[in-house]
Amino acid sequence: MANSESSTGLALDAASLMSIVLEGILYGFSVLMFIGTMWIFTYKRRVRDVNRPTIAVATLLFLLSTAHMVVNIIHVENGLVKYRDTFLGGPVAYFADLLQELFVVKNAILVLETLLGDGIVIYRCYIVWRSVRVIILPCIMWCGVAVFGVCMVYSMSQPQTSGSTNFFLNATSQWITAFISFTIATNLLSSGLLAYRIWMIERNVSTIHASKKVPILHVLVDAAVLYSAAACSSLISFICSSSGMYVMADLVIPVIPIAFYMVFIRIATNHNNQFHASTGGFGRSSRYPVQSLHTIRLDTQNSGISLGDSSKA
C-alpha cells in the first residue's frame, strides 16, 4: 500500500484519518460495553464470588483496544501534523512506510487481540462439547494464526529485499493474506461447532427450556458474524489492493471486544426480562443479577450436557 498509484480508493492520508474516526466511534461503544460487563459481573457480589477469569479477559481486551487507539492517534498525528513537512514524500509516504515503529506496534496489537479473541471462541466451544477432540483442529488453526501473525509483524519490521514499497506486492502480503484467512476460518469453525452443539441439544429439550436457549444461540451467532464480517472486509480490501484495508484493519480492533462483551450483556439482559415476565413485573429483583447467568444450562434429560458456567465461556 506504500505506492498510492497502485492502490484504489482513498489516498493513504485520507484513509488513515477515516480509520481513526471510525475506530474512535466503535471504541466508544466498546468502552460502554466494557463498563456494562464489569457491572454485570461485580454488582452486589462478594469478592470471592467475582468471576475473575472473565474479568481478566475483558480487562485485557479493553487494554489492548485502548493501546491500539492511543498508538493509532499518535501515528495519525505524526503523519498529518508532526512530519507532514519534513517527511520525504509528505503524509502519503509516511503512512505508506511499513518500517514506522508505530505501524509495526499497531499490527502487533492486532495479532495479540486476534489470538485472544479466537482463543475465547475455542474455549467456549470446549465448554459446550466437553471434549478435547472437538477442538483439536481449531487449536491447530489457532497456532497457524499465531505463526502467520508473528511472521506478518516481523516482515513489516524488516526492509524489503526486493526494494518494493508497494504494500500489496512485497513479501509481507503473503503473511497478511494467510493471517486473515486463518483467523476467519478459525472463528467460523469454532463458532459453527458451538452453534451446532447448542442446536442439537435444543432439539432434545422441552419447549420451556428451548425458550431460554434460543437467545444464547442467537447471540453467539451474531458475535461470530460481526467479527467474521469485519475480518472478511479486511481480506477483500487487501485482495483488491484497496486503501480501505487501512480502515477495516483498524475497525477489527474494537469489534473483537464488542463481540466478546455482547455475549454476556445480552444473555444477562434476556434473563432479567424473562425473570420479570415470569413474576408479572412485581417480583423482587434478584440480589445477585448474574447468578442465573452462571447457571444457564442447556440440559437434556439423558445427556446432561450444559453450556456450562458462564465464567468459563
Rank of each mutant, 00 (worst) to 15 (best):
N270P: 00
T269R: 11
W142N: 02
T42K: 09
E77T: 10
S155M: 08
T183G: 01
T186Q: 03
F87P: 02
S237D: 06
V104K: 02
G144R: 01
A259R: 01
T279Q: 06
F238K: 01
C240S: 13
N302I: 13
W142Q: 05
I184A: 03
N72Q: 12
F264R: 00
F148S: 09
A146P: 03
L32M: 11
D13N: 14
E202N: 13
C151W: 07
F275N: 02
L10K: 06
Q100L: 11
T172C: 13
I208Y: 10
A195D: 03
I73F: 15
T207R: 14
Q301D: 12
R284V: 15
T42H: 11
S234I: 04
G304H: 05
Y246D: 03
K212H: 05
E23T: 08
T183E: 11
F167C: 01
D49I: 07
S237P: 03
C232T: 12
W175H: 13
N166H: 08
A11E: 04
G90Q: 09
Y261G: 00
A56Y: 15
P91V: 10
G90W: 09
N187F: 08
Y27F: 15
I216Y: 00
H209A: 03
M33L: 15
D118A: 14
F275L: 13
G90H: 04
V134G: 03
Q274K: 07
V50K: 04
V70Q: 05
L226V: 08
S311G: 15
R266K: 12
Y288L: 13
A224V: 07
Q291K: 05
H75S: 05
I20P: 01
A231K: 02
I40L: 12
T37N: 09
I267A: 02
V31A: 09
A14N: 09
S30N: 09
D309Y: 04
F29C: 08
C151N: 08
V150G: 02
I236A: 08
S65N: 12
I176L: 14
L22G: 04
M245S: 11
E113W: 02
F95W: 07
V105G: 02
P159K: 06
A11S: 14
T86M: 11
K44S: 15
I208K: 12
I120L: 08
I256Y: 04
H68Y: 10
W199F: 14
G308Q: 00
M156L: 14
A268C: 09
S19Y: 10
D85N: 10
S190M: 09
Y288T: 07
I109Q: 00
P254A: 06
V105I: 15
P289Y: 07
V150P: 04
R130S: 08
P289W: 05
N72A: 13
